[in-house]
């Protein structure tokens, strides 16, 4: 029985439990304190743990991420909120030159147990408030990149992210944050107590034998629906939720493709130089026999403003269904 809460509350529940468990955990960002986050994912934290551990900052992302580095060097575990992932441009320097590299550059002497908690995904907000960008982070060595698709995973992956000694970019999908747990067809049961979901282990959401569909975050649900529809036409689709882009669980993907021989990657991020090509290339490097490949991703255009335009470029149930049919040769 699903508890009456939405996905952002599951994340806030995870943060509550982490802050209670470990006094070194801090939450720092814009509107995370008094307001409890613009999506409510940090609600109640400041009231419970005080304005020292839960700090409302000015709109100063370089200061937020930079101070995260200093705090990590002091032994803290900062959770830094970058409200929308699109804003990472103004502070990417600290993220990829310090947070991602300090462990390496110090020869393993310093650790950066930092969570960069941020919201991504398309909800009709136009080119500067709709990106996913996990491919960008994944390209930069030293960052783990997590993007949950359901309430159960969101809570458990956040616990793992905070507990991790490595920096984790945690991308919450804006289209899922305010969705009620009971409205999810998978991962809707969220225990009240603490638990972890390991980072780097994909989840086979739906088993199938004709085609492997690999996706994550906001496109898992429409992929499952499309897979249900496909079954009515006699196409059995296995849907894999990657959960994280780094580490990329190729063992799970490869085991599935060995069975199906066909791969469709559905990615809400940009098409080129990204997740979809990475998954397919790694399969080829493993010399797995593939008879059909398709990539469905945002076709290298900024996310348009009008919903009628956005629907044309962002994978949805209709385009996923078409891609499934095409990949199995039944288009």
């Amino acid at each position: 029985m699903a508890r009456n809460l939405n996905l952002s509350q599951c994340i806030s529940e995870a943060l509550h439990l982490e802050m209670e468990r470990d006094p070194q955990v801090l939450v720092i960002g814009e509107d995370v304190g008094g307001q409890g986050g613009v999506f409510g994912a940090t609600r109640g934290l400041q009231k419970k743990y005080g304005s020292g551990r839960v700090l409302d900052t000015p709109i100063s992302e370089s200061a937020i991420t930079g101070m995260g580095v200093g705090l990590a060097l002091e032994g803290y575990r900062p959770v830094l909120e970058i409200m929308f992932v699109d804003f990472i441009g103004v502070c990417l320097d600290q993220v990829y030159n310090a947070i991602a590299k300090n462990h390496y550059m110090s020869g393993g002497k310093v650790r950066m147990p930092i969570v960069i908690k941020t919201a991504g995904g398309c909800i009709g907000s136009g080119a500067q408030h709709s990106q996913c960008l996990w491919g960008l982070f994944a390209h930069l060595p030293g960052l783990k990149v997590v993007a949950p698709s359901n309430p159960y995973d969101a809570k458990g992956l956040m616990a793992s992210a905070v507990e991790s000694d490595d920096p984790v970019v945690f991308i919450e999908h804006k289209g899922l944050l305010l969705k009620r747990a009971e409205d999810f067809t998978f991962g809707s049961d969220v225990p009240a107590e603490r638990y972890t979901v390991p980072i780097g282990k994909a989840n086979v959401v739906r088993e199938g034998s004709d085609l492997t569909l690999v996706t994550l975050s906001g496109t898992v649900a429409p992929s499952v629906t499309a897979a249900e529809e496909a079954l009515k036409k006699g196409i059995s689709v296995e849907v894999i939720d990657l959960r994280s882009v780094v580490p990329l669980d190729m063992d799970t993907v490869a085991a599935s493709v060995k069975k199906t021989g066909k791969i469709l990657v559905v990615d809400e991020d940009y098409l080129s130089f990204g997740l979809s090509a990475e998954v397919v290339t790694r399969l080829l490097e493993r010399k797995i026999s593939i008879t059909s490949v398709k990539r469905l991703a945002v076709p290298d255009v900024p996310i348009p403003g009008a919903l009628s335009l956005e629907q044309e470029v962002v994978p949805n149930e209709r385009s996923i269904s078409a891609a499934i049919a095409e990949t199995v040769g039944k288009a």
Binding site: T65, M67, G68, V69, G70, L71, Y76, A98
Partner: peptide, 9 residues
């Protein structure tokens, strides 16, 4: 900004 983090610590 990194020093700022140390100062906040």
């Amino acid at each position: 900004p990194v020093a700022l983090g140390h100062a906040y610590a």
